[in-house]
Amino acid sequence: MYIIIAGGGKVGYSLARELQGGDNELLVIERDGERAAELGERLEGAALRGDACEASVLEGAGVRRADLVAAVTGDDEDNLVVCEIARHHGVARVLARVNDPRNALLFGKRGIETTVSATDAILAQIEQELPVVAVVPVMHLHEGLELVEVRLPETSPAVGRTPRELLLPPESLVALIVDSGGVPRIPAPDTTLTVGDALVVVTRAESRAMLGEALIGGAHGFDT
């Protein structure tokens, strides 16, 4: 699957990190030259300097053969334009990050799927093709702490246990459990975790792999 990400900020970068590897081909398009060079270093060259709102840049990036274009810049108008141009070039699946939630209305009218937490939703969008089981960063908090989301797969060692019984890395805390029906709950001592639960966890950035082992299981590799 060929995925183009427009916008190489924090969201674009973490998304790229999650998606890179396996059979995916990935490209991040970033307007700022220095940032694009930095992304190139960090993403094994999968970065292109340019303005994704310019039809010729998208065209040169091979948009015609892209399976998914995700527009995740910090500007909603740019994200709309990227999605429209991508669709004009025949891309079947486009997805936009909305920075101002009120703008979701316009994207909806244009038939463009939107998300506030791009990483999360894009992973959900492609998971039919890509069996993604991952620790998805949702938000960076201060002092190296971050908020991540983990959906419990069947193989999870956490299934059938209560949050208290989990062997989480130090300074990690299950803040919220969203069940497969989308209902959020604050974890209680008697809450039993089930398959498909999405756990929103506060953890340290360096503990992501350890957290993955505790919640997903050792069988799943982390290439990030």
Partner: peptide
């Protein structure tokens, strides 16, 4: 350009 397009839409 993009602002104009967005507002027009």
């Amino acid at each position: 350009d993009n602002r104009n397009f967005f507002a027009s839409q």
